[in-house]
Design a protein around this nucleic acid. Structure first.
Lengths: 285, 285
DNA sequence: TAACATTACGTTAGCCGTAACGATA
DNA sequence: TATCGTTACGGCTAACGTAATGTTA
């Protein structure tokens, strides 16, 4: 059973070329290093050094030993790292959201169902969500398209419709419904960090000029105090949280109506069963 | 920097399921084990056990940790193993000989040139000698055919001719020369452990009945006291070491005349240069 | 003389085993 | 009551740092 400190000392010496140098680097004394090197040779029963009267050099075996030692040290460090990471992985739940509304709806559910766990939520376009589930970056993900992979389990967890909110004096205000192309070219107020919606907007209205707001407070303030059209979610409108003085017109494009799919690794389905049983596929948020 | 003993203790506990069992296996006391486990948890900052009032069980993290620990321990053991093996490899010279005569000739040379090294000689058919040089089973090899691999350096190091030694009353005694097929079907006395010669004999005289002698002393004794023909090497005949009362007749088959090739890894050519410079390609042993 | 490795020596941190304790089946 | 894990305590090993020694450039 070898003492890893000996290996550390050996590696330091191999790097520095001198015991005093190594001692400095390791914040210890030369005698300690001398002893370690002797102990190492004795333990292995093999000479590792060429000893001059006042110079110490690694011999061929010593160089190989230092090389192997680095590997063992790495394994030891990895051990601590991996164990801590594993423990952390048991106590953290990383979730990828493709849009803000699912986050708003599902986060409280998760908080109550997995109490004591650290929840880490990610908000981004969901193109890579399957990979991120498979490589364990996420334990859960909410996508706007059903994942097509037998290793991934999923269930519909909700639905969202998009509206456009305009001021009464807007030329669009009288319309019963709107298409995305009607908005193309306009200046539109938009929250940033809205997941796949951003990609959808950019492709659906390539010539619109988006005025990005990074936080919801300033977004609502600017929206209330300006005439820029803004996108609104049916989820908020249904809860009465529309912007004061705005008319909300439904958008007819299919891309503005989406189902959401809650997904996890099929192998971890059981762990998240309580969550899946609580989501109601028929609720239109 | 983790103490490998802690990992050993953890693995023992994981195997035994109980601290007392692990303590027995490790020839130590339960308190030591208790302390090790606590220390490990403290060091990692992560719980590894489920503690009942008088029962200790690994939790999920603990099981993973034990798994990793086994790996680290193996790396540590490997370290000692590998370093010792490397040192040994520097001090031992393994040589493959395809025939006894090259061994007789070259061994003393090697002993003087590489004094202090452990010489390990192998005597066998040389079909695999190239591979064995490449995978470092041998550092040197003597083959009876030139190795055809750019990674292997070689030089002709000698030549051997085979004779057949018969008693004067043998029907073959009057012949000036002999072919192998003249011997096929006879009972022939043969030393074992003669490298590729054995294969050669078996194929050259498939119907001969070979009386194998495992050591040279009994071989010469039986040879002198019987009328069985025996193969003799030109090397020994030229040194006057023929069997008393025998007539030595040259064998004309090309397979009974061979050059020998001393070979080593091209990358180690320099290390064995003194040896190569001492072998004289023009000497017919 | 400065830098190096090694040896000597006294100190101490920390680990171990014995023993005692508490809990459980 | 036997087995298990934990805690307490005393002894001792073994590693450390300081200081001294010897050698080299």
């Amino acid at each position: 059973m070898i003492d890893l400190r000996l290996l550390e000392h050996l590696c330091a010496f191999a790097d520095c070329g001198t015991l005093s140098g190594a001692a400095q680097r390791l914040h210890t004394s030369q005698p300690t290093l001398t002893r370690s090197m002797h102990r190492l040779e004795e333990l292995l029963g093999v000479p590792l050094f060429i000893r001059g009267r006042n110079a110490l050099t690694l011999n061929e075996t010593g160089r190989k030993a230092a090389e192997y030692a680095a590997y063992v040290l790495a394994a030891g460090a990895d051990f601590e790292e991996k164990v801590r990471a594993y423990d952390r992985s048991l106590h953290t739940l990383s979730i990828g959201y493709c849009a803000p509304v699912p986050q708003t709806v599902i986060t409280p559910l998760i908080n109550t169902l997995f109490e004591g766990m650290t929840i880490s939520a990610d908000m981004t376009d969901d193109r890579l969500f399957c990979e991120k589930l498979l490589n364990r970056t996420y334990q859960l993900a909410v996508l706007h398209e059903p994942p097509d992979d037998p290793r991934i389990f999923h269930a519909v967890c909700g639905h969202e419709d998009l509206y456009i909110s305009v001021t009464p004096d807007s030329p669009l205000a009288s319309r019963a419904e709107i298409r995305l192309r009607d908005l193309d070219g306009l200046s539109i107020l938009l929250l940033s960090r809205i997941g796949f919606w951003e990609t959808m907007h950019r492709t659906g209205t390539p010539h619109a000029r988006y005025l990005l707001q990074t936080d919801r407070a300033s977004f609502t303030e600017v929206a209330a105090g300006s005439t820029y059209p803004v996108f609104s979610s049916g989820y908020y409108l249904r809860r009465g949280e529309s912007i004061p003085g705005r008319i909300n017109i439904p958008i007819t494009d299919p891309s503005c109506h989406t189902d959401y799919y809650l997904a996890c690794l099929a192998s971890e389905k059981d762990r998240y069963a309580p969550l899946f049983s609580r989501i109601d596929a028929h609720t239109i948020w």
